[in-house]
Amino acid sequence: MLDKLLGVASALAYAAGTVAAPAAPDAAVVLTFEDPNIVESSGLVAAGKLFVTTNDSGDGGRVFVVDRSGATVGTTSWEPGPRDAEALAPAGDGAVWVGDTGDNARSRDSVTVLRVPVGRTYQTVMPASYELVYPDHAHDAETLLAHPGTGQLFVVTKDVFGGTVYAAPKRLSADRPNELTEVAHGPSIATDGSFFPDGRHYVVRGYARATVYSFPDFEVVGSFRLPQQRQGEGISVGGADELYLTTEGQFTDLLRMELPPDVAAAMAPTPMPEPDPAPTAAAGDGAGSWWPWLAGIAAFAGVGGWLLIRRGAAA
């Protein structure tokens, strides 16, 4: 219920600000979900030509694999279902992380992430499950990040006055709880996020805006408006650094947008300075000034040797 109220409040604020605010960025419709079972797309992973999404709370344990026609071409189901699945993150080829991290009432002692296989198939599995424990108290969270290089997971909480980024252990244990570590501040009302392929940046979205951060220092690189959506809760970065966006609702559109040029420029690697050319020795300067001395010593030694030979011959 709190999610709905936040969504309505955000939509009203968005509408109230459209007169003075700059126009929403251009976005293209990639597909429209055809599956009537996809009613609350709350997490998104772009996997090549396929997209993986999951419903918000109230659904069982399942994820949907959708091609670019909008048709569902595979599902993965499991039991028991999650309490409140809110996020997805890449988990290597043919798998995603499902974040059972939603907690509107802030009453859960711990949350769970599950590694779920996905593909163009309909399957029921028993996924590997890992318990995560916050170091302070319970939080509501809808954002799960997976670093593309190390695979380490990060949870970003959803709070009105600013969230928190928590890091999971680099190696998760399935046999005992895994304690999260607070590493940075996050934006307000974070609904989803994704790392960029370079592993040096990640993006976290809310209902109307998104923010790009640097990694591993967690500094803000830039913030920008998102296309207007009913209740945007899904974002994923494609291989070309394109952003894909989804929203709750049945038969909704999956959108694609490019990063604003100023944000893309701020993310560009800083060019390395050109090395200075190797110095050339000039006569009388630096190392080159030694050769007259060496030549003089050699000449002196030669003359001295010649004199000694003459004196020996005269004797």
Results as ranks from 00 to 15, higher is better:
232 G>D: 10
183 V>T: 07
187 P>C: 04
212 V>T: 03
120 R>W: 07
9 A>F: 08
47 A>F: 01
260 P>D: 07
237 V>P: 06
5 L>R: 11
231 Q>Y: 03
2 L>W: 11
194 S>F: 00
288 G>S: 12
126 M>Q: 13
236 S>V: 02
55 N>L: 12
191 T>I: 07
203 V>N: 05
201 H>T: 08
90 P>R: 03
289 S>N: 11
127 P>S: 00
186 G>F: 10
49 K>I: 00
51 F>S: 02
240 A>I: 00
94 G>M: 04
210 A>W: 07
73 V>R: 08
60 G>R: 05
301 A>Y: 04
128 A>G: 12
30 V>M: 12
48 G>Y: 04
87 A>R: 05
306 W>E: 08
167 A>L: 04
164 T>W: 10
166 Y>L: 10
156 V>I: 13
298 A>E: 12
106 R>C: 04
60 G>M: 00
261 P>M: 06
229 Q>W: 01
192 D>V: 01
264 A>I: 04
294 L>P: 00
46 A>Q: 12
58 G>Q: 11
257 M>Q: 07
115 R>K: 15
50 L>V: 07
308 L>S: 11
263 V>Y: 03
186 G>S: 13
259 L>M: 10
278 A>L: 14
169 P>Q: 05
77 S>Y: 00
83 R>K: 11
231 Q>T: 04
289 S>L: 12
236 S>Q: 00
205 R>E: 08
223 S>P: 01
119 G>I: 10
206 G>H: 03
60 G>E: 08
306 W>F: 12
162 G>F: 13
182 E>L: 10
65 V>L: 09
142 E>I: 08
177 P>Q: 06
263 V>C: 01
300 F>K: 04
116 V>R: 05
